[in-house]
Amino acid sequence: MNKSFPIILELETPQHPDDIFSFIKMVLAKILDHKMLDIAHQQKIKMILVELITNSIKHSADQGSQIKLVIDQPSLSIQKFEKGLQIEFSASSQQIPFEEVDKILKISFSEENNHHIQPLDRYKFKFLNPHKEGFDIEHMPEHFGFYIITIASDSFIYQYDPEAKENRYIVNLNI
């Protein structure tokens, strides 16, 4: 087993939903080549990858996206890069670039898809853990990929680079 960290792997994401699972099994095998992980961490990595790739297929299938894995001690960073327009919230939410970066914002992508975020700079924010709020079936969203990534990870950050016109999704896991 390779002990020279960090190990960086870069991969093109699949562009069809039915190719996701085989891709994820391949990625997980590559990670396990370098780092032993318990089942709970393996399950979280699979969930995160499923949702990152599904999000790309839904929103930027034509552009394609890249996954970069940084396997380190004691962390794993799963980063997704895709060209295109910045993430856009619903009309009632504050948009990027943020005017205020020192307070928590509530944003939404649809009527029942709300998230609390912490802006980190004008083009960057962190998703905050939604579990504190509680939920019931009436308020359960029908589209909650980012929710899954947030609770499966130790941190989930979105960043937009306006010069490169690139979206970056950075998911970190303590492993």
Binding site: F21, V50, E138, M140, P141, F144, G145
Partner: peptide, 17 residues
């Protein structure tokens, strides 16, 4: 079924609702 994604979870939520 080997895996379920958020879209399918959303479908289940819609069915339950």
């Amino acid at each position: 079924v080997e895996y379920v994604d958020s879209s399918f979870l959303g479908a289940l939520v819609a069915i339950l609702k």
